[in-house]
Design a protein around this nucleic acid. Structure first.
Length: 559
RNA sequence: UACCCCGUGGUGUAAUUGGCAACACAUCUGGUUUUGGUCCAGACGUUUCAGGUUCAAGUCCUGGCGGGGUAACCA
């Protein structure tokens, strides 16, 4: 009776979870998204967010938001706030489960004492450089003199470190593991360093701070995380992650699994480099619509739905792949096509005069708001004798297959009449300044012209007497190379910047309905693309989110 | 250099765990259409290499080649 259902295609993380659930190893899935509050979230983080929250949802579990704030020198509350706003915008909710690694500082410190007391950690007096030398990688390393200290001596020193008796950088607490391990993370890793920095949450309560490795797995354990997902570069940390779990009195044992982070063509997410772009005024700031940050994508007009469906499409694996940016754009078009109302806007206006239109008359013509959504209804557009059409929609010398307007030719004005171009008016420089046309009254409502012949071209327009001026910002890739980091010898990634990533059009003519668009409101400008009203500008400014697919551009390019 | 991870169409992921290599995007062709949009139909094309085990290998074994990660008192 019912169709056999296609087997669900699980990614490798989902398979692990499925197994853990069916074996009883896991009762309820519990994940976490663990950003360091030292910058804004970008599209790469969106993958981690969707995977962690999505996995929990899919298997009936929960997901924590945990700030990995163990390095106060780099962190700030500003990012704590911004990150939460971005995650909410993406559509995820951590409920009451907001955590901070700094919230576990006391527990972590007790873990440290435990390690010292059980002979698994010691206070080391070596400088940072000396630690590196003693590790002697890849040769077997040498033991630090501190390694020989008794637990009592190390404990005393640790407590005095905590009490602030020693200067910054003078001592560290290290795990006693194996200085000859082929995995450098196991060569007596540093657990605590002395650093007098004011923490954005704990203030000056602490002058010693735990390292990532000593904080992360234990925070996972304390929060009851079952599946700790992170990116590939932490693979080598997993043995250490597990070593701590083995040597500490923890009840629930989390499991670390690594997956490949997202890489996108034409996109660079390096914080340091993006900051350079801002400082050099290549872009406006972290929310410049060309940036890969979530706030920039939001301002650009991206929807959370599109980003989520994109992440869903690209899958999860351990292979370091690069996803084509068009996949993201396509997800966006798919969402916006369903949800965005249609409007007409002329970006580069060319005047059209309808010479046989009754003087001073205006006619209201019905235009559908969204052909994909009947409930969106319709609106009317005023037609008259003075119109604007797109400069691109007229060619004095049309290339092959061009079926828009040409001298003596016909074109349909969308939702209005077919017109014939009778006369081309030019200025002294030879630029086309106006087209004088006649309209065909019988073609209203999609009828063919009385004189026969099919009119293939349809162009958008606005009434010059009833329109509003606006600024429209056309965005393109920030970089012209698929891989922005791909530079010739002696070159710089800056050379890969796309000089045309932003084009500002000051004199766009938009239909009146667009005059009171809300900031952030999204529309499809028919035949052009998706646009949204800018949220950070005073006047009437629209950002182009993404173009429509343009098969004509391809035809024309191929000549 | 040492250790770890990974190689499936142009791109990204699948393959009931050893049994006809599939899905999406891209590309090309055609159809529908008052958006050169959407939608629909079709075409294209693949297991990194060499051995081995097996009736049967993308899947298991050995070796090569290629790519990535790590080598912080950052995360």
């Amino acid at each position: 009776m019912s169709e056999p259902e296609a087997p669900e295609r699980l990614n490798f993380v989902e398979k692990i979870v499925t197994e853990d659930l069916s074996s009883g190893r896991t009762q309820q899935v519990h994940t976490r998204f663990p950003p360091e509050p030292n910058g804004y979230l970008h599209i790469g983080h969106a993958k981690a967010i969707c995977i962690n929250f999505g996995l929990a949802t899919k298997f009936g579990g929960v997901c924590n938001l945990r700030f990995d704030d163990t390095n106060p020198a780099k962190e700030d509350v500003e990012y704590v706030e911004a990150i939460q706003a971005d995650i909410r915008w993406l559509g995820f909710d951590w409920g009451e489960r907001l955590y901070f690694a700094s919230g576990w500082f006391e527990e972590l410190y007790q873990f440290a004492e435990h390690l010292v007391q059980t002979g698994h950690a010691y206070v080391c007096d070596l400088s940072a450089e000396e630690v590196r030398e003693y590790r002697a990688f890849p040769e077997p390393g040498r033991n630090s003199p501190g390694r020989e200290r008794t637990p009592e001596e190390s404990l005393d020193l640790l407590r005095r470190m905590k009490a602030g008796e020693f200067p910054d950088g003078s001592r560290t607490l290290r795990a006693k593991i194996d200085m000859a391990s082929p995995n450098i993370n196991l060569r007596d890793p540093v657990l605590y360093r002395i650093a007098r920095a004011t923490h954005h949450r704990t203030g000056d309560d602490w002058c010693i701070y735990p390292m990532y490795d000593f904080a992360h797995g234990q925070s996972d354990a304390l929060e009851g995380i079952t599946h700790s997902l992170c990116s590939l570069e932490f693979e080598n940390h997993r043995p250490l992650y597990n070593w701590f779990l083995d040597h500490l009195p923890i009840e629930k044992r989390p499991q670390q699994t690594e997956f490949a982070r997202l890489a996108l063509t034409y996109t660079m997410v390096s914080k340091r480099k993006l900051l350079q772009l801002i400082e050099e005024k290549v872009v406006e700031g972290w929310s410049d619509p060309r940036m890969p940050t979530l706030r920039a994508l939001r301002r650009r007009g991206y929807t959370p739905e599109a980003i989520r469906s994109f992440i869903d499409t690209i899958g999860v694996a351990k292979f370091n792949s690069t996803v084509d940016l068009v996949v993201l754009e396509n997800a966006l078009r798919g969402d916006l096509n369903r949800s965005a109302q249609r409007r007409m806007g002329v970006l580069r206006p060319l005047k059209v005069t309808i010479t046989n239109w009754p003087e001073g008359q205006t006619e209201q013509l019905e235009a559908v708001n969204n052909p994909e959504d009947e409930s969106a209804g319709s609106r009317t557009m005023p037609f008259g004798s003075e119109l604007w059409i797109e400069q691109d929609d007229f060619r004095e010398e049309p290339p092959p297959k061009f079926f828009r307007l040409k001298p003596g030719g016909k074109v349909r004005l969308r939702y209005a009449y077919v017109i014939t171009c009778d006369e081309v008016v030019k200025d002294d420089a030879g630029n086309v300044t106006e087209l004088r046309c006649t309209y065909h009254p019988e073609t209203r409502g999609g009828q063919k012209p009385a004189e026969g012949g099919k009119v293939k071209g349809i162009v958008h327009w606005v009434n010059a007497q009833h329109c509003v001026d606006a600024e429209v910002r056309l965005y393109d890739h920030l970089f012209s190379k698929e891989n922005p980091e791909d530079v010739e010898e002696g070159g710089h990634w800056r050379d890969n910047l796309n000089p045309d990533s932003l084009e500002v059009l000051g004199g766009a003519k938009l239909e009146l309905a667009l005059a009171d668009a809300a900031p952030g409101e999204k529309f499809q400008f028919e035949r052009l693309g998706y646009f949204c009203r800018d949220t950070e500008s005073a006047g009437l400014v629209f950002n182009r989110t993404v173009t429509l697919r343009d098969s004509w551009a391809k035809i024309e390019q191929q000549g």
